[in-house]
Design a protein around this nucleic acid. Structure first.
Lengths: 269, 269
DNA sequence: CATTGAAGG
DNA sequence: CCTTAAATG
């Protein structure tokens, strides 16, 4: 029998600007949540631009990794009730590291990669950033693969900016050529699964109409015209401890909603 | 005896972005007002960016003159219940005309110059735009002087971006070096009076603490820490018909408030 | 402390 | 449709 004290709940949320999200109640959500760890994407702020209540909330350990080449762009952040043993941010390539996209944290034996994968759309709504996005997918996967193969528990979570299959977006047909659902992007996502990672939400739920992002345009969220582009992937070593995977569409504050996994605490070793 | 049907009421208002001002009730003010003519400064929009209710309100004739070299910058607009006989916008120098600062309208014999005088502060909060501002003052004054000397009724109204005397701002001492109250700017304003123009508000009111602009910072408007930088100047030919000059500090929607003059309708000839 | 456009999403 | 920064006031 497992009671809640034995559980570890981990969230990933693209907040689309933490300052804006904070105005809409981020701290209420955080303090009221059952989260042990929260990974944010698109923080879009330097730590010093945040209020102290947001950057260092009572009862939480935080780490921020902003983009260094452009203010207000990208950026990831981690919150944990218990201090991480280690947080690293390098992918070994300056072109990835400078965009504030990746934090890899250790909590006991568990590795948590909090990631904001690149958007494939370039400056003029073109597809010019797709090669960078695919390279990023490859580099991170190659980086984490050894730990997976050693049987370690690893989570890769965040905004992948790709819907995997037709079931993962409301309008697959009209979006076949749209960045985020193009064949090469979907194939790149598939490579993670082929390499042994599990899409934790799909592990528990085969139903359609579960999305994590809705454009602000045209009232899409109310109509649930969305995309599932935020995921928690788990290595086989983490799957042994996986109790649940959820999407939280009722949590407001961003155009994305949080996603989560619940693990048995034994995953920490 | 003069009743209200014999009066002509003319307003000038720096709206600090007409789209923003419209969100805060500009049309309610306009339709509820006793204005015959309204001159706006800092419209900061092309006519096609305005809603039709704002750009062509029922019962009003309108003319807009935007800056042509930068979107969202400067721009003046005129509203009149009765059609103008003529509206011209050129000062004869491209460097002035391209910034959308001046409309000179004729209503019968009355000439109304609706003007957004340049701010003296340059890009880096420096004083680099003061020479341009002073040249603008000179050019417009020289342009209008012949009509004044012919005895015609002329009004020059709008945001002069200069407080004339100590009485015209809450903190004269600390602002002696600030653009808007520097000696050379005040002298340039004084030249209008020396040339025969009357500061209509001061004609009726010698009291201090009457301001037309308050910075949004630090709750200055509630504390009435402001500047009188919006004026209606009248030629001797207009002064003959002047009944009142007012400041309307209770009209909200901008960091400036409207100013007005009331003339006898005989000024139209 | 506001407004605006631009880039990015 | 929304966030952010930069220019401007």
């Amino acid at each position: 029998m497992t009671d809640s004290a034995d559980l570890l709940k981990i969230y990933a949320w693209n907040v689309n600007g933490l300052r804006a999200c904070a105005r809409k109640g981020y701290l209420d959500w955080l303090h009221g949540s059952d989260a042990d760890v929260v990974g944010l994407q698109e923080v879009r702020a330097l730590e010093e631009q945040l209020t102290k209540k947001v950057s260092q909330p009572e009862g939480w350990q935080t780490h921020f990794f902003p983009a260094e080449f452009k203010k207000g762009y990208s950026g990831v952040g981690l919150y944990s009730r218990k201090a991480f043993d280690e947080v690293s941010t390098t992918m070994g390539e300056e072109r990835f590291d400078r965009e504030g996209r990746t934090q890899i944290a250790k909590l006991g034996k568990l590795t948590i990669a909090n990631v904001y994968f690149p958007n494939g759309s370039g400056t003029n709504r073109d597809l010019s950033r797709i090669p960078y996005k695919l390279d990023f997918y490859d580099r991170l996967r190659e980086m984490l693969q050894p730990a997976l193969e050693r049987g370690e528990p690893v989570l890769v979570m965040g905004d992948f900016n790709t819907a995997h299959q037709d079931i993962d977006l409301a309008n697959p047909t009209t979006n076949r050529e749209t960045s985020g659902f193009r064949p090469e992007e979907r194939a790149s996502f598939q490579q993670w699964l082929d390499a042994g990672w599990t899409d934790t939400f799909r592990h528990f739920c085969a139903e359609p109409e579960h999305y994590t992002w809705w454009t602000y345009r045209g009232n899409c969220r109310a109509r649930n015209v969305g995309w599932r582009i935020d995921y928690v992937l788990a290595s086989p070593g983490a799957m042994e401890f996986l109790m649940a995977a959820e999407i939280h569409p009722d949590v407001m504050g961003s155009d994305h909603c949080p996603v989560s996994v619940t693990l048995h605490r034994d995953v920490l070793g």
